[in-house]
């Protein structure tokens, strides 16, 4: 598999989760284990651009796929706008859910761009769904934050979705 752009070839037992491969075999500990049961989202990574819970994924199923973890979301030494927005809006406290929140938000924004509706979308057939606060909260509800940094996370996603990040970056 490719992880953050680099080819990784390794042999693991079929029972090993993608999460444990990242953390224990590849030393990519940015991806967190919060429940190991698919209930918290701390382990969210991107597979070919789509978000998944890596604790519920067997590593062997992902042979040949492109995995992106929090360590790989920055491009060319430039932080991802969400990373900067999280700091600006204090979208975390302890930081343990943060990698999952950021990866999940990247995946969520792509889903939204592709026109996917959510449980709170009023008109399922509408071409473009406005990314309201309620839409973001619904779509991010698989990512728990026990520190309760939800407001800052939603603001960060709103900033980036609205392109504010670029304005702010330009103003610096």
């Amino acid at each position: 598999m490719r992880v953050n752009g680099a080819v990784q070839s390794l042999e693991v037992e079929p029972r090993v989760s993608l999460l444990d491969v990242l953390r224990e075999h590849l030393g990519l500990t940015g991806t967190k284990k919060g429940c190991n049961q698919g209930a918290c989202g701390a382990c969210t990574v991107l597979v070919d651009g789509e978000r998944i819970n890596s604790c519920l994924a067997l590593a062997v199923q992902y042979a040949g796929r492109e995995i992106t973890t929090i360590e790989g979301v920055a491009t060319g030494g430039q932080a991802h706008p969400l990373q900067e927005a999280f700091i600006r809006n204090d979208g975390f406290q302890c930081g343990y859910c943060t990698s999952g929140q950021i990866c999940s938000a990247i995946g969520m924004l792509a889903e939204h761009r592709a026109g996917a509706p959510s449980a709170v979308t009023e008109h399922l057939a509408a071409e473009a769904v406005e990314l309201s606060g309620a839409e973001i909260r619904e779509r991010m509800s698989g990512n728990l934050c026990r520190c309760g940094a939800y407001n800052g996370i939603v603001e960060s996603i709103q900033d980036v979705a609205a392109g504010h990040a670029d304005v702010l970056a330009a103003a610096r």
């Binding site: 929090i70 360590e71 932080a79 700091i87 204090d90």
Partner: peptide, 18 residues
């Protein structure tokens, strides 16, 4: 802004099992 913001948003911050 928090002084540990970069560490926590890039996955660099190491917790006890890491």
């Amino acid at each position: 802004d928090r002084v540990d913001g970069v560490a926590k948003t890039t996955g660099a911050a190491r917790y006890s099992a890491e």
